[in-house]
């Protein structure tokens, strides 16, 4: 009778964890419960078929180990020729001795909903099982916290795996500046922002750091070249290179109860008529401009004049485009 694959995998994990130095494929086949050990009295043809069946089964099990996050070390023993042996280092594989409180585990559980339907969905669920192993049992409380994204890329999982092995990735990409091209990138970090996912990394052809939006990747992402082929530099935690741009101050008028986000980071400077006045620091014109525009008349730029003019020209252009569209619809 065929052995339950879960039983075979579990026995393989125990065997490789207990192996003193390593186990070769032949040793695994002969001794781990669940694999069919070589038999005597078979024709060479039958022997070859059984051998091939074992190889397929073992490759599948290696994939399962990788999927579980168990590092499989390959050990070459010079006294036994070139044959590869395998071992699992218990200390390397084990979950660190960190316990999560029930409240912490409940917060982490929101990952299941966030990745539902995405390639990382099963990974999120399996990760939550691991968190549960390190969490005290407690009555389930309704989750008062959630996160969703309306689109997630299938490329994320491949990029994350390649990054863990420090292996470059290759993909077809369309950008504003360079058009359509094949890019080879050393992935440093995946960035989640709103409904968008990005990868930051070294573009090998340009020799520079670049950010790629995963939705603009066409087709599949392939891991290419050898593992451990690059190092990841220390990444800034801010929004990128902001050192060179000086900080300026804008004076903004806000209607009462409007512009909560602006108020949060601004300094109050009294009020004039129906306007609350605030001074807000900024680096880029478009940052404040877009925020003021989105407040649709509940905010106004008092100074500098260049910023006010920028808001005015954007609003005038939008008004013109909207009017033209409405007239066009009327005619149609």
């Amino acid at each position: 009778m065929a052995v339950d694959p879960a039983e075979r995998l579990l026995n393989l994990i125990i065997a490789l964890t207990h192996a003193r130095v390593r186990m070769t494929r032949a040793q695994i086949r002969a001794s781990v419960a669940g694999y069919e050990a070589p038999q005597h009295g078979l024709t060479p043809e039958e022997s070859r078929r059984k051998e091939a069946a074992f190889e397929r089964m073992f490759e599948r099990d290696k994939d399962e180990l990788r999927r579980m996050g168990i590092p499989l070390r390959t050990v070459v023993d010079p006294t036994h020729g070139d044959e590869i042996g395998y071992k699992i280092d218990a200390s390397d594989a084990a979950m660190p001795a960190i316990d999560f409180t029930p409240a912490e585990a409940a917060a982490i559980a929101l990952a299941a909903e966030y990745w539902q339907g995405a390639t990382l969905g099963p990974d999120a669920n399996q990760g939550l099982t691991k968190i549960a192993s390190a969490t005290e049992a407690a009555p389930r409380t309704p989750l008062s916290l959630g996160a969703r994204a309306s689109s997630r890329s299938d490329a994320t999982a491949v990029i994350v795996e390649a990054r863990a092995r420090r292996q470059a990735v290759q993909f077809e990409y369309t950008s504003e500046r360079s058009g359509h091209a094949t890019r080879t990138v050393e992935p440093w970090q995946v960035v989640l922002r709103g409904s968008a996912e990005y990868v930051v990394g070294l573009d090998r052809d340009k020799g520079e750091k670049r950010t790629f939006r995963l939705r603009r990747i066409h087709g599949t992402v392939r891991a290419v070249g050898p593992e451990n082929s690059y190092e990841i530099p220390t990444l800034p935690h801010g929004r990128g290179q902001v050192e060179a741009v000086p900080i300026r101050t804008a004076r903004i008028g806000l209607r009462p109860e409007a512009g909560n986000a602006l108020r949060q980071r601004a300094v109050a400077a009294g009020s004039v008529g129906d306007w609350d006045i605030f001074d807000v620091e900024y680096r880029y014109d478009d940052q404040v401009r877009d925020e003021v525009l989105a407040l649709a008349g509940r905010a106004r730029v008092i100074s500098p004049e260049s910023l006010a003019a920028d808001v005015r020209s954007h609003a005038q252009a939008a008004l013109a485009a909207a009017s033209a569209s409405l007239e066009g619809d009327g005619r149609g």
């Binding site: 996050g69 218990a90 966030y114 399996q126």
Partner: peptide, 24 residues
Amino acid sequence: SQGVGQVRLSPREAVALIGALGVV
């Protein structure tokens, strides 16, 4: 337990959990 137990988070699991929690 024969010395076996839960294993560390895989790179994909880690990104799934840290990424989603990071969003909130």
